[in-house]
Design a protein around this nucleic acid. Structure first.
Lengths: 110, 110
DNA sequence: GAGGTTGTTTGACAGGTGTCAAACAATTGC
DNA sequence: GCAATTGTTTGACACCTGTCAAACAACCTC
């Protein structure tokens, strides 16, 4: 057994995170909803009903999760068939202080 | 002479301002730059060299200004050939408290 | 190992987007 | 009034994007 299970999907380094790209990634209703969910600290599967995105195809959800990750917003660990996604809170706070807090405060909690 | 010179270009009401649309509007390098400029309280013309966008066609700048206005970020008064643009700071603060502050703090001041 | 589950990748397609150019409209100055 | 200035609108065009579907890969379960 390895010390840490699963492997991380590719993501940009902290210094390569760009504000415009972050805002572009969040400028979509579906991704803004995913952001709010991950901001709450929970980790879901792609096609989970609990995402409130049951009407979207699983490949569409997978696409949105990739956009969030490549923008530097989320970090994803692949373990078996599951993906454990979490917000890169520390990295984002270090690079853009106060931004995530303001976004969480105003993102639709649903 | 009228009490207030010029007329306002159409803009959404405060309650119609949508967070995803705001983030979408700011998810473009040019518009994020315009946002940072207007956030500083200054008001420029479209094709002003001081915008640091001299390489862009005037119709392109006009397009970006329209997107910012229709997203509810800016307010524009037309006086003669000039457009006086300002951030809708009060409206935005009322609807999404802390958001503009965090954005200004992290937007490239240049 | 067979079959079902979970997520990614690719292709396709309609619709949106950023840019320029040209035409247009309104204004200012001579 | 005529010409120059300033910004908008429209058209064109390449590119990007959100969505689905199908194929694929990895995994779990029996």
């Amino acid at each position: 057994m390895e010390p840490v299970e699963g492997e991380w999907l590719p993501q940009p380094a902290v210094e390569d995170i760009d504000l415009a790209k972050i805002l572009h990634a969040l400028g979509d209703p579906v991704r803004l909803r995913l952001f709010a969910i991950y901001a709450s600290g929970e980790q879901y599967n792609c096609s989970s009903e609990r995402l409130g995105l049951g009407h979207l195809h699983k490949s569409t959800v997978s696409h949105h999760m990739r956009v969030l990750r490549e923008a530097g917003l989320t970090s994803t660990r692949a373990v078996g068939r599951n993906r454990y996604v979490r917000l890169r809170r520390d990295d984002l706070d270090a690079r853009y202080p106060g931004l995530v807090e303001a976004l969480i405060r105003n993102a639709p909690a649903d």
